[in-house]
Simulated assay, not measured.
Amino acid sequence: MIQRIQTLYLVIVGLVAGILPFLFNLWIDGKGIEFFAQNELWISIAFYVSAVLAVISILMYKNRQNQFVVNRLNMILNLFLLGFFVYRSLSLSGEAMVSEKGIGMLIPVFSIVFLVLANRAIKKDEDLVKSVDRLR
């Protein structure tokens, strides 16, 4: 059903992945230039795909197993983004010219947390349905 708690979690993931990377900077390089998600095409595509996967998962409320799988794929995508951001933050120079890591680098972490919460709620619903089927 669409009024479940996992829908709220997935809406939050869709909003976080679809809007926040374009509002908050991901990092500031040594020259003081702020880097947003729209500056790099593949990063913006990855965030948009994550938001679209969350919306697709919301619409798959009748098939909980596929919803669970789509959320796992979304988690893997966010883990790749997080890995890239960690690699990028470690390769940013911070010696002579100070570079800063932006709050936007934490967006995949928030997405992963809410996806895990959504998957736990989906699993709980699936277990409830199985227990009711056993009683019949």
Rank of each mutant, 00 (worst) to 15 (best):
Ser111Tyr: 03
Met60Asp: 03
Ile5Gln: 07
Trp27Ser: 01
Leu77Phe: 06
Ile56Leu: 15
Gly83Lys: 02
Leu92Glu: 05
Phe80Arg: 05
Gln3Leu: 14
Leu26Gly: 01
Ile122Gln: 09
Asn74Val: 15
Ala51Arg: 02
Leu10Asn: 07
Leu15Asn: 11
Ile103Arg: 00
Val109Gly: 03
Phe36Trp: 05
Met75Asn: 11
Val55Ser: 09
Ile43Arg: 09
Phe35Gly: 03
Asp29Glu: 10
Glu126Met: 11
Leu41Thr: 13
Gln6Ala: 06
Val16Gly: 04
Ile5Ala: 14
Ile5Glu: 08
Ser93Asp: 14
Gly18Tyr: 02
Leu128Gln: 13
Val69Lys: 14
Leu82Pro: 02
Gly14Thr: 05
Ser99Ile: 02
Phe22Asp: 02
Thr7Arg: 04
Gly14Val: 03
Phe84Glu: 02
Tyr61Phe: 15
Phe85Gln: 00
Tyr61His: 09
Tyr9Val: 00
Phe110Tyr: 13
Val109Tyr: 08
Leu53Ile: 06
Lys123Thr: 15
Gln65Trp: 14
Lys130Tyr: 05
Leu82His: 03
Tyr61Leu: 03
Gln6Leu: 05
Ile19Asp: 11
Phe22Ala: 00
Val11Tyr: 07
Leu117Met: 15
Glu126His: 08
Arg4Met: 01
Lys123Asn: 09
Met60Phe: 06
Val11Met: 10
Val132Thr: 08
Leu117Tyr: 06
Pro21Gln: 06
Phe22Arg: 09
Phe114Lys: 07
Gln67Asp: 01
Gln38Asp: 11
Ser93Thr: 13
Trp27Tyr: 11
Tyr9Thr: 01
Leu82Met: 06
Leu26Pro: 02
Ser57Phe: 05
Ile103Ala: 01
Leu77His: 12
Asn25Met: 10
Ala46Asn: 08
Asp29Val: 04
Gly18Asp: 02
Val116Lys: 10
Ala96Gly: 15
Lys101Ser: 12
Asp125Phe: 04
Phe22Asn: 05
Ile43Gln: 08
Asn39Leu: 02
Ile112His: 08
Gln3Cys: 05
Glu126Phe: 08
Leu20Cys: 07
Leu53Gly: 01
Pro21Gly: 04
Ile112Leu: 10
Ala118Asp: 01
Arg134Pro: 00
Gln67Glu: 09
Glu126Trp: 05
Ala96Tyr: 09
Arg88Pro: 00
Trp42Met: 09
Asn39Thr: 02
Leu26His: 00
Leu73Thr: 15
Ser93His: 14
Lys123Trp: 12
Arg72Ile: 15
Pro21His: 07
Gln6Arg: 12
Ser131Tyr: 07
Ile33Tyr: 10
Val132Gln: 11
Glu95Ala: 13
Glu95Val: 14
Ser89Pro: 02
Gln6Met: 08
Ile5Lys: 12
Ser131Lys: 10
Asp127Glu: 12
Ala54Phe: 09
Asn74His: 13
Gln65Asn: 14
Asn78Gln: 15
Val109Arg: 05
Asp127Lys: 09
Gly30Tyr: 11
Arg134Thr: 09
Ser50Trp: 15
Leu81Asp: 03
Arg134Val: 02
Leu92Ile: 02
